[in-house]
Design a protein around this nucleic acid. Structure first.
Length: 423
RNA sequence: GGAGAGGUGGCAGAGUGGUCGAAUGCACUGGUCUUGAAAACCAGCGAUCCUUUAUCGGUUCCGUGGGUUCGAAUCCCACCCUCUCCGCCA
């Protein structure tokens, strides 16, 4: 959510800033509502004030045993006006709030112009895609040949876009999770946190998945809960409604969860293999920080995600998302794309974002600034560190051998009984 | 799932229709005192929104949402949550 004050006072500037996302803000209807709001709110509060003072007067008269009927009649007329004024105000505020809650975050100045992913800006490349002296297979062929990845059974027990993994692949998957958690908690200073996988609507509102993107979520209607599409929701919402002290910041959490996405609207996209599943696992970094540090922290967070790929020796590139490709709540996002020999291309494996105060405002997540001694909004950030399913694919495809076996990356062997190869 | 109790400021806890945003204690902040600290004493100490350059002023908030009333922390209704006991259960 944007700051209502700023929206009011700098409406046109904000509309221009949002053009970067290829969106046009209906400034005239906002202005109109806002003008009405100002008048009605002032009027309502004046009437409330009058009612309060008159009611007190009644109390005083009665306690002295005097007649209060005259004042009571007076208040009755005030009350009729007040009821009308209050409901009008309520309506205006609901409309304004509906608009406000649906406006995306303002892109940071360093976000490139553009409308599609083709306009994203490559920041850097790391590592060289390996030259295979045979035709590299993709993870589906590799996994099925090994008999360790089974889509058919998953479809039988659930539906499409699910997978069953066996033996060495299942173990490799688990090793990746542990490796990531250990690296972030031991080397990057994150505290490990374990959270619920079902969240309520308030939490989804807080981080921005609701109300606009309900169709992307799995909804357990009879309980009013949602399956998390990312650990961002439960972890970030731990500070919802809180006022943190200076000493508690920054908060750095590392969290492993499964993620559930309905993938509505992506029919026919990435239907082969494990790239796009309804259920996948992710290790997520989440930070709550003081506002003046958040852009430094974003670079740091990005580095933490890159460190995982570097340790796994997987080639990747970093892109700075253009305005049109930016997520709803984000002010700036870097994607990391890993090299997949089976697809002969780079594919997204991590997304690191600074939300500035956008989520914090929705969540009322604040800290007490010792300089002002007043509560101020936090900045929130998160990044995948990394998407485990896609990392598994990247390891399989980049570490494949001509015989179809997969060499286990050095750093993962300690998690796999020092095994060196999956066959 | 059944029975009972309860949700008030950072914490503890009073308040059952009127001057209550809310006693008191603790914690915290500032001051006096002290070589320094502690103790003692004095003072301060929630958030929200509107108006305003700012001050001043006003609004709203006692789990949440409705209702009754001139007036609600207090009465009524619904919901949520917590605790205790019983049942079930990884």
């Amino acid at each position: 959510m944007l700051d209502p004050h700023t929206l009011r006072s700098e409406l046109d500037d904000i509309a221009v800033a949002l053009n970067k996302r290829n969106m046009t803000l209906d400034t005239s209807s906002i202005q109109e509502l806002e003008d009405k709001r100002k008048i009605i709110q002032t009027k309502t509060e004046e009437l409330q004030s009058l009612r309060n003072s008159k009611s007190k007067e009644i109390g005083q008269l009665k306690s002295k045993g005097e007649d209060a009927q005259g004042v009571m009649n007076e208040v009755a007329t005030i009350k009729a006006q007040l009821d009308e004024s209050e409901s009008e105000l309520n309506e205006i505020q609901l409309s304004l709030n509906d608009i406000l809650i649906g406006i995306p975050n303002i892109p940071h100045v360093s976000v490139p112009e553009g409308s599609t992913e083709d306009d994203n800006e490559e920041v850097r490349k790391w590592g060289e895609p390996k030259d295979f002296d045979f035709e590299p297979k993709d993870h589906v062929d590799l996994g099925e040949a090994l008999g360790l990845i089974d889509f058919e059974t998953a479809t039988k027990i659930t539906s499409s876009r699910f997978v069953v993994m066996h033996g060495g692949i299942a173990k490799l998957h688990r090793a990746l999770i542990q490796f990531m958690l250990d690296t972030h908690s031991e080397e990057h200073g994150y505290s490990e946190i374990n959270v619920p996988y079902l969240v309520n609507a308030d939490s989804c509102m807080g981080t921005g998945q609701l109300p606009k993107f309900e169709e992307d979520l799995f909804h357990i209607k009879e309980h009013g809960l949602y399956l998390i599409p990312t650990a961002e929701i439960p972890v970030t919402n731990t500070v919802r409604g809180e006022i943190l002290s200076d000493a508690e910041l920054p908060k750095k959490y590392i969290c492993h969860t499964p993620c559930f996405r309905s993938e509505a609207g992506s029919y026919g996209k990435d239907t082969r293999g494990m790239i796009r599943q309804h259920q996948f696992e992710k290790v997520e970094m989440v930070q709550m920080v003081k506002p003046d540090t958040s852009y430094d922290v974003l670079e740091e967070l990005l580095g933490h995600a890159e460190a995982i790929l570097q340790k796994l020796e997987l080639p990747y590139r970093v892109v700075n998302l253009c305005g049109g490709d930016l997520g709803f709540s984000s002010a700036k996002t870097y994607d990391i794309e890993v090299w997949l020999p089976g697809q002969n291309t780079y594919r997204e494996i991590s997304s690191c974002s600074n939300f500035e105060a956008f989520q914090a405002r929705r969540m009322k997540a604040r800290w007490r600034n010792p300089e002002t001694n007043k509560p101020e909004l936090l900045h929130t950030l998160n990044g995948s560190g990394l998407a485990v399913g896609r990392t598994l694919i990247a390891v399989m495809e980049n570490y494949q051998n001509e015989d179809g076996n997969i060499t286990i990356p050095e750093v993962l062997r300690q998690y796999m009984n020092n095994q060196t190869v999956i066959s």
